[in-house]
Computed example of a mutant assay.
Amino acid sequence: MAEGKIIKALSGFYYVLSEGKVFQCRGRGVFRKQKITPLVGDHVEFQATSETEGYIMDIRERKNWLVRPPIANVEQAILVFSAVEPDFSTRLLDRFLVLVESKHIRPIIVVNKMDLVDDQTKPTMEQYIRDYRQIGYDVIETSTITKLGVEQLLSYLEGHISVFAGQSGVGKSSLLNALRPDLQLKTNDISTHLGRGKHTTRHVELLEIGGGLVADTPGFSALELDDIELEELPLYFPELRERSEECKFRGCLHIAEPKCAVREAVESGKIPSYRYENYISFVEEIKERKPRY
Rank of each mutant, 00 (worst) to 15 (best):
D138A: 15
M114K: 00
E101N: 12
G136A: 02
K122L: 14
H203R: 12
Y14L: 06
V98D: 00
I161W: 03
E242Q: 15
M1S: 13
K270D: 15
K5Q: 08
E267K: 13
S50P: 15
P291A: 04
L206H: 01
E151A: 13
E224F: 09
Q127D: 13
V44P: 04
V170W: 07
E19R: 09
G29E: 11
G27T: 00
R263D: 09
S273F: 05
R106N: 04
L176S: 00
S174D: 08
R28W: 03
L10I: 10
P70M: 11
D182I: 01
K270N: 14
R196P: 04
E257F: 01
P107L: 04
H104Q: 09
T49Q: 03
E284F: 05
A265P: 12
F23R: 12
D58C: 05
T192H: 11
R68T: 07
K198L: 04
G251R: 08
L66W: 04
E126A: 15
L206C: 01
T52H: 11
Q47L: 13
Y55V: 14
T192G: 15
M1Q: 11
V117W: 07
T52Q: 09
Y137W: 12
P238C: 06
S162K: 00
I59C: 07
Y274C: 10
T121E: 08
K186V: 05
N278W: 05
L153T: 07
P38D: 14
D189A: 15
I209D: 03
P38C: 15
E277M: 15
I161D: 00
Y156I: 02
V110L: 00
R95V: 05
C260G: 10
K35W: 08
M57A: 09
I271E: 14
Y137G: 11
G159D: 08
I7H: 01
R292I: 09
Y293N: 14
D118S: 12
K259V: 03
L253E: 07
I71N: 02
E45A: 04
G29S: 13
L179G: 10
G251C: 05
E239W: 02
N188L: 02
A261N: 09
G20T: 14
I286P: 03
E51C: 10
N64Y: 10
L206K: 01
C252V: 05
E267V: 06
V84W: 07
E245K: 09
G41Q: 08
G212C: 06
R130K: 14
T90R: 06
D115E: 12
I135C: 10
H193L: 13
T142S: 03
E264I: 06
M125K: 08
I161C: 02
V139Q: 12
R130C: 11
P272C: 11
D87N: 15
S244L: 15
S191T: 09
V67Q: 09
C260F: 03
I105R: 04
G219C: 05
A215K: 00
S102M: 07
L175Q: 01
S268G: 06
P38A: 14
E264R: 08
A83F: 00
L230R: 05
P69I: 07
I71F: 05
V67M: 14
F81Y: 10
T146Y: 04
T52D: 10
H104M: 02
G54L: 01
G4M: 07
E208A: 15
A165Q: 00
L79F: 08
